[in-house]
Design a protein around this nucleic acid. Sequence first.
DNA 1: GTTGATTGTCAACAGGTGTTGGCCTACAGT
DNA 2: ACTGTAGGCCAACACCTGTTGACAATCAAC
Lengths: 185, 185
Amino acid sequence: MRRTSTETKSIILSAARERFAADGYERATIRSIAADAKIDPAMVMRYFGSKEKLFAAAAEFDLRFDALADVPREQLGSAFVRHFLRQWEAGEALQVLLRTGITNDGAAERMREIFAGQLAPRIAALTGDPQTAPVRAAMISAQMLGIGLARYILQFPPVVAMSEEDLVSWLGPTIQRYLIEERPS
Amino acid sequence: MRRTSTETKSIILSAARERFAADGYERATIRSIAADAKIDPAMVMRYFGSKEKLFAAAAEFDLRFDALADVPREQLGSAFVRHFLRQWEAGEALQVLLRTGITNDGAAERMREIFAGQLAPRIAALTGDPQTAPVRAAMISAQMLGIGLARYILQFPPVVAMSEEDLVSWLGPTIQRYLIEERPS
DNA sequence: GTTGATTGTCAACAGGTGTTGGCCTACAGT
DNA sequence: ACTGTAGGCCAACACCTGTTGACAATCAAC
């Protein structure tokens, strides 16, 4: 009885996040995760039941948009970009979701929940227009996921080379427009 | 001797494209591809040597930007968006690349080649500014890949519901700005 | 000090993977 | 009619996957 169960559980969880983020769902094997955590594969099963459930636990995620509550309206675009970039770099969670959401249906569903369920309401509150919020949220998600893809997954050299401020000055106006522009549909 | 070898080869190839696009690299097994093509798995090996090489053949792709040669400068943004959307829908090739490029290093490399090697030169020619072309190409790639991701892979409902014209009117100005806007860095 | 529960290890399972070699089978050339 | 060649199929290989159950080690409670 070396450690307490919650300790090992969280060791496994962080090893799992790393592997899922680096390799995607299929290639992140339970055996490799267990090896990283220096633990027997059977422990993973004991504590999480199955690979699917382990993944569900590893992909738990909160975009924390509440931090943007009191940003002046005309700076919302830049603030969003900065916030997203920091979420990308803060933990592996977003990379886990993106890497796995593309082959794993459960992850895709979780992704839809997060971006529709967390981003859209926040946008509705910030803009005061619940009607167009889902579309705006989807456009912003697409742009920010695209940048994450290019920078952290596909690693396009120009995008990797850019500083946070470069990215903010390119993307800020785009997001600002997706947020407030008057639009049909 | 039912068919000629080039026939079966192309039957396998199109089955492979479908599977890679739908399932990603790992889950698209040679056995499932062979089953789709109503052919023995060993044939796939005989004709393509390995799964990796089969994938390389299936991911051959040309973005065909030459079609945009004589578009008036102020309509380039919309034209790009329309062109990209049609490329997404024309064949599975782009979806193959995106689905697999995220777990398969070879596909990621191919993706970089395509977007840096095909898009950037075209932009340099269209704008007459070879200096900033790589960054502009990368920003446009990120935005258009993000939309493809949201619409065809993750299937965000608002993005799926939008018409081509809706998407053009949202994305056109963005791409236009990434193309021609004066910028540092 | 014994009991009971909790943490960890080991070996094996059933099934799926890419890949290989041998064996048919049908055709073309002579 | 016979032979050579090229397309196609089958069975098997070695390996890896998630998952399971039985067994050992360690601690807490009484």
